[in-house]
């Protein structure tokens, strides 16, 4: 485990705690896309099914269980506990347009044509684009609470930090994972516009507002 990966994982953990904190303290899931959160449940379950047949480390298993459990808990908070605060009329991105291409990509690009590996590849592609309903919603409302932008920044930083990790692993272990690398670059790329506004506005003490 190198420092980039570790920081990436910490950033991912932090993003979930920030999101939970936002929902609990404001007692609202306003500004959060249910569709994106539901896609993360699909991503984690599809990818971490290997919990049942592969043991890597305590760290690895604990993180996988945490990501599955926390993503399900967030859905519960959004759909049941704070349901009235969720406005489905602005959360309208068609997730079929993400699921179908990801399934096709997974069937074409995988390391072995079996159920678990195709599902793994599917989860990698789906994770890359799962943020789109959220970004689409942000685009529609044109603004966001600061705490929501911190959540998105931590979530975006997580996969961005995996990129130097992959470079490091290539040089130190000779490992290359073209599927994860390609999807990871796409995933990070989707955040570029957001990061620009986050760094130039939110971190300068201004409100997150997109130009009209």
């Amino acid at each position: 485990m190198n420092i980039f990966r570790f920081l990436g994982d910490l950033s991912h953990l932090a993003s979930i705690f920030i999101l939970l904190h936002k929902i609990q303290t404001t007692r609202s899931c306003r500004g959060i896309s249910f569709r994106t959160q539901a896609l993360y449940v699909v991503v984690f379950i599809a990818r971490y099914l290997d919990l049942f047949f592969r043991y890597v480390s305590l760290y690895n298993s604990a993180m996988k269980l945490f990501f599955i459990a926390s993503s399900c808990y967030i859905l519960y908070l959004m759909k049941i506990r704070y349901r009235p605060t969720h406005d489905p009329s602005i959360d309208t991105f068609r997730v079929e347009y993400l699921l179908a291409p990801c399934l096709i990509l997974a069937l074409i690009f995988n390391y072995k044509f079996n159920f678990a590996e195709v599902l793994w590849s599917f989860s990698i592609w789906l994770e890359a684009v799962a943020i789109l309903p959220q970004l689409f919603m942000l685009q529609r409302t044109g603004e966001a609470e600061n705490i929501t932008t911190h959540y998105l920044a931590a979530l975006g930083a997580y996969r961005a930090l995996y990129i130097p990790n992959w470079i490091y692993r290539y040089f130190t272990e000779g490992l290359v994972d073209p599927i994860a690398v390609t999807a990871g670059i796409v995933q990070t790329g989707l955040y570029l516009d957001f990061f620009y506004v986050y760094f130039t506005k939110v971190l300068q003490g201004q409100k997150f507002e997109l130009p009209a």
């Binding site: 485990m1 990966r5 994982d9 991912h12 290997d50 592969r54 890597v56 480390s57 690895n60 993180m63 996988k64 990501f67 390391y111 072995k112 793994w120 995996y162 692993r169 272990e173 490992l175 290359v176 994972d177 073209p178 599927i179 994860a180």
Partner: peptide, 10 residues
């Protein structure tokens, strides 16, 4: 065996 991915990443 063709390329295998590192199984330790999240």
């Amino acid at each position: 065996d063709p390329a295998v991915r590192p199984k330790d990443e999240l």
